[in-house]
Design a protein around this nucleic acid. Structure first.
Lengths: 232, 232
DNA sequence: CCCCTTATGTCAACGCCATTGACGTTGATG
DNA sequence: CATCAACGTCAATGGCGTTGACATAAGGGG
């Protein structure tokens, strides 16, 4: 038997499914994204995807080498969302901040997909283009290559790390998420100063802050540190 | 049929398995931890756990309501590991660095549990004690309350975020993880300078660096930024 | 238009997963 | 000793991702 998956660029045949649908690589990715949004990570299986496509599940293996390959395609799709419409201003710090928040935001728009994909390295076009851009900003700002790569590494992994953390929170069942959010008020804010002087002294600040994402703060601190290295 | 799982405090019976082993809640948790360490997340299945225990896999359901319940029990076991043996030196920056790396390391020792639990807010004693300690270090260093809470928020969430990101990588099936690791060499390092000048110029550095965790770098940058705020 | 070829979609099956129902029996208790 | 419930086993359930084989739709060439 020949290779099951045909190279996407040389794909020519168009055969409808039993229900009349013409499958494409793009349609499968978009359908998978929709299923992740509607049913969560556990809702994306080959069989359910097949049903949603009006096809047999195994048809998906004509387009992707496996479900993992599909997940990588989804990851690249999200990366494309993050970069869409972005334009450089020439202010390296502002540009990196904007990019970081965009990447974080794109993943947060699809929490279930983020949880599955933010840790992956795809080498696909959108990811490669994004990485080329970030490295370009850092090198253009005057960072030597060693520093540029080190900062790029911390920057991109930090944005992806917070994307997963915050996405995991959003992906929780509603009851679990609300219970977690109440902990700061119900548990922490009630701790006595005698046993927990630091928490007691800062409780109103904790209640006000801890249920929001810490990513903007962490990002600004990372950029401040990079900026200090450039000045020094 | 009555409830399958008996409350642990009221458990009295001791019946040996076919191989003579007496099962306990603790034995199952410890065996599962060992299997996670030795075989990775994909290596912990009910069947394999049963084999390792010298029991039928379904016996595990006498002790845990499901594999997820077991994973959370494992995480509970872990939580104490991160703080165990830690002692303050009085150097706020060194102490925070040590704590950050310990938290990260404890989760990385059990990626599957980390992926499931690092985003949760439990208000449990060990978590509370850890937060009290970190806030104490920051306030003790001279940060005003508003800054202490802001930095604490970025610090703790960043450590948890990187824990999930890196744990998710470790939790991948071996083939997927190795494929991801090869992407820097197989894809990125081969991009031509004509189209990707920045990646091409830094490729050897990327190959050398990107498969390791960026957490130590991000942590140091966060601490540098905090330090600069204290000085300024 | 017809014919050939092959890529595409379908179907059935494989080997694995977590889990449950039912049964036999061990051992605590009275 | 007798009773009985908890414990461990076994077989089955319902699902998972994936593959081999087959039928056929459709592209390409004559």
């Amino acid at each position: 038997m020949t290779e099951r998956v045909v190279d996407e660029a040389s794909r020519r045949r168009r055969r409808p499914t039993k229900h009349g649908q013409i499958l494409t690589h793009r349609l499968i990715v978009e359908t998978a994204l929709r299923m992740l949004r509607e049913h969560g990570a556990a809702g994306l299986t080959a069989r359910r995807l097949g049903l949603a496509l009006g096809a047999d599940a195994s048809a998906v293996y004509r387009y992707f080498r496996g479900m993992d390959d599909l997940v990588l395609a989804i990851a690249d799709e999200l990366y494309g969302h993050a970069m869409a419409g972005w334009a450089a201003t020439g202010d390296w710090r502002g540009d990196l901040r904007d990019l970081g928040l965009r990447i974080h935001h794109a993943y947060l728009a699809h929490p279930q997909a983020a949880v599955l994909t933010a840790s992956r390295v795809t080498g696909r076009p959108n990811e490669v283009a994004g990485d080329e851009t970030i490295l370009g900003i850092l090198r253009g700002a005057g960072f030597p290559d060693g520093d540029a790569v080190r900062i790029y590494h911390a920057f991109i992994d930090q944005s992806l790390a917070f994307a997963i953390l915050d996405a995991a929170t959003l992906a929780l069942p509603k009851a679990a998420r609300e219970a977690d959010e109440e902990v700061w008020h119900d548990t922490y804010a009630r701790l006595p100063a005698a046993t927990h002087p630091n928490i007691a002294a800062t409780a109103p600040l904790l209640v006000a802050r801890m249920n929001d994402s810490a990513y903007p703060t962490a990002l600004d601190m990372l950029l401040s540190s990079a900026s200090a290295q450039l000045s020094g």
